[in-house]
Design a protein around this nucleic acid. Structure first.
Length: 296
DNA sequence: CCTTGTGTTCTCCG
DNA sequence: CCGGAGAACACAAG
């Protein structure tokens, strides 16, 4: 599951590889993953370049710069390629297309692209391809203008890696919620970028049980959680993200933060801090892992 | 049956 | 009956 650290790793990888390369062609193998106007999709992309790549929370947006000849009317509004990877989406850049004969592979090895989960391919002039792979096809690609992009990004809360969080204001909001602290932290409208893995890890670091009603936590405890968010995400980015099932970086390689997970996916195993058995339950409809001793 | 991110819809409560 | 909150569902495939 790509969450903020994984998306950040992909974005920084792609910035080094695809910016200012002319898009020679776009192949869409599963039209369903293109949201919005399909004919507009190719029209806007082919012949253009990606001028910059941005991110907020788990949303990725690539600024499209047209490359019309001088004198051509380019006054039309800016366009962006908006990408959401949802649970199993990948964006993988390769210098060369087709490491597999026939351009089709059943291997889950992301080094072997395209494969049967490749949904779209961007071919750059000269050399280089960007593959959008998605096993479960929840992810999408969409051409959006500045207005729509702004509308989407304004619906989600601050990004704890890109912005300084207003801890006091956020703590007040959390205090007002009656649902579990885990459900609150998963809510992208409060804070953008946390998903199931990092919420479990964050609550372990903070010594708080995921099922605790948010409003029953003391303000100091809530602030402690919020102060832990940035360091946790930064350290995950330094490990290039968590590969648990499906995630790979912009070059198709795994992240190593999986080795540093304290609770996620460790149900039944010993807590690395106190030796207690990590419990697995369901909170907010999600698989939830916690240490009964370290987390109150 | 399980896994999960997000958008939508349903249900509950005051 | 309304608004808001929170829960449940839909989506998909292995």
């Amino acid at each position: 599951m790509p969450e903020l650290p994984e998306v950040e790793t992909i974005v920084s990888d792609l910035r080094k590889k695809i910016l200012a390369k002319k898009i020679a062609d776009v192949e869409v193998r599963l039209p369903r993953i293109v949201a919005g106007d399909f004919s507009d999709f190719k029209k806007k992309l082919i012949g253009a370049k990606f001028k910059s790549i941005g991110r907020k929370g788990k949303y990725i947006f690539l600024e499209i710069s047209s490359v019309f000849p001088a004198g051509h009317n380019t006054s039309s509004k800016k366009a962006y390629l908006l990408v959401h990877l949802k649970m199993t989406g990948q964006l993988v850049y390769k210098d060369k297309y087709g490491l597999v004969a026939g351009g089709h592979s059943d291997s889950t090895d992301p080094a072997l692209v395209p494969n049967r989960w490749t949904r779209a391919i961007f071919y750059f002039s000269g050399q280089g391809c960007l593959f959008f792979n998605d096993l479960r096809t929840f992810g999408y690609l969409k051409i959006v203008g500045p207005d729509e992009l702004g509308r989407i990004l304004s619906k989600i809360g601050p990004d704890p890696v890109l912005e300084e969080l207003d801890i006091n204001a956020l703590a007040q909001k959390i205090k007002a919620r009656k649902t579990s602290i885990k459900a609150v932290l998963l809510d992208q409208k409060l804070l953008a970028g946390l998903g199931n893995i990092y919420v479990d890890e964050l609550l372990f670091r903070s010594g708080i049980r995921p099922q605790t009603p948010a409003g029953r936590l003391s303000l100091p405890k809530i602030k402690r959680i919020l102060e832990n968010v940035n360091p946790l995400l930064i350290s995950a980015i330094e490990s290039r993200g968590t590969t648990f099932n499906n995630y790979v970086d912009g070059a198709g390689k795994s992240g190593s933060f999986s080795q540093k997970l304290q609770v996620y996916g460790r149900g039944g195993k010993k807590c690395r801090k106190c030796g207690s058995i990590i419990l697995k339950t369901k909170v907010a409809g999600r698989g939830t892992h916690f240490c009964p001793r370290c987390q109150g």
